[in-house]
């Protein structure tokens, strides 16, 4: 279970949030909302442990994520604004490397199935530089079908995706939540999933 307690976050001189509290339980999805510049990405980066806050704490199962960084990272999938794809590696190589770096056993058949699901199977041996923005996004999301981790932190995952991929991701989110996963995401439209699982959180002072 993830808890955010009395968080204060600044970017330069401006105060983005103060005394911000939030908790995320198994089977729950938090949809962060807010206008541009209200600190959605900053908050996600703090929660994932990439940035540090001014004050306050982020707790994973009641342990501060700073003190148990490695244990926390192994429970977490963070997909940021940038798709984290190497242009010089092929689609398949990109996926293999990102899984291996996270200690996931790579089974080539499952990998190809996942690429099939996200619609990149025919391009698996092409260098990633030829992919379009939407295809890049699909490739970085493919990890969600292969890596079983309880907490997903997704920054604008629906960006650049077409209608069909949108639906695909929503289905995957649903599956994840039903099998008591957790997710926190930012998005400009409300994800179309079971309303009981969805919590809206608005940012902006």
């Amino acid at each position: 279970m993830l808890k955010v307690r009395a968080l204060e976050c600044r970017r330069g001189a401006s105060l983005l949030m103060s005394d911000f509290n939030m908790s995320l339980e198994a089977g729950q999805l938090i949809h962060l909302q807010g206008a541009n510049g209200t600190g959605k990405t900053s908050l996600l980066r703090i929660i994932s442990g990439l940035s540090t806050q001014e004050t306050g704490k982020v707790l994973w199962n009641d342990v501060d994520i700073r003190t148990a960084r490695e244990d926390y990272s192994s429970n977490l999938i963070y997909i940021g604004h940038q798709p984290a794809i190497k242009d010089d590696l092929t689609v398949l190589e990109n996926l293999t490397v990102s899984l291996k770096l996270n200690g996931v056993k790579v089974d080539i058949k499952r990998l190809e199935e996942a690429l099939e699901v996200v619609g990149l199977a025919r391009r698996k041996n092409l260098p990633a530089r030829v992919l379009s923005q939407g295809q890049r996004r699909r490739l970085s999301l493919a990890r969600l079908w292969l890596d079983q981790r309880p907490l997903w932190i997704l920054d604008e995952p629906f960006n650049a995706l077409d209608v069909q991929a949108n639906k695909l991701l929503e289905e995957r989110l649903d599956q994840h939540l039903v099998s008591s996963g957790m997710c926190i995401l930012t998005s400009h439209h409300t994800p179309n999933i079971d309303k009981k699982l969805l919590t809206e959180v608005s940012l902006g002072l």
Partner: peptide
């Protein structure tokens, strides 16, 4: 530049 460094920071290892 391509965001893979962020992912390396999140690899569960020192």
């Amino acid at each position: 530049a391509d965001g893979t460094l962020e992912q390396l920071l999140l690899v569960p290892m020192p």
